[in-house]
């Protein structure tokens, strides 16, 4: 079940994220749920798979904004790293990074569905 404690256990900085939501837990959890179901993850996956770095950057950049505000650190950190690498046009193992992101997302999604 998606709870503050569960999110904290998985590494989210819930204090920070909740603070931005004026400590309104229900509001925060609703946004976390929305964020995990964001279609941006699918866009990012498709772009990385197809090697479209521009589209991958845009999708990652968009995700980074909301993940950062919710302080979902386990996903935010790899998404932010991916975004910066793509911004700099650097070669990297983007597929491996995507895998980490999706893995972390999966773990959080499991909370929603549990």
């Amino acid at each position: 079940m998606l709870t503050i404690d569960a999110l904290r256990r998985l590494g989210a900085n819930t204090e920070e994220g909740l603070g931005r939501c004026l400590n309104n837990e229900a509001f925060y959890l609703r946004l976390v749920n929305m964020s995990l179901h964001d279609a941006g993850f699918d866009k990012l996956a498709a772009a990385v798979e197809s090697g479209d770095r521009k589209a991958a950057f845009e999708a990652a950049h968009a995700l980074k904004g909301s993940l950062g505000n919710l302080a979902l650190t386990p996903i935010y950190t790899p998404v932010a790293e991916l975004t910066e690498l793509l911004r700099g046009g650097q070669d990297a193992d983007y597929k491996a990074m995507l895998e980490t992101i999706l893995l972390q997302r999966g773990a959080l999604l499991a909370l929603c569905e549990g």
């Binding site: 309104n24 509001f27 946004l31 929305m34 968009a62 904004g65 909301s66 505000n69």
Partner: peptide, 13 residues
């Protein structure tokens, strides 16, 4: 702000 989550947080603040 195009992102719904960011927009919601901002509006709340």
């Amino acid at each position: 702000e195009d992102d719904l989550i960011n927009r919601e947080i901002l509006s709340l603040m």
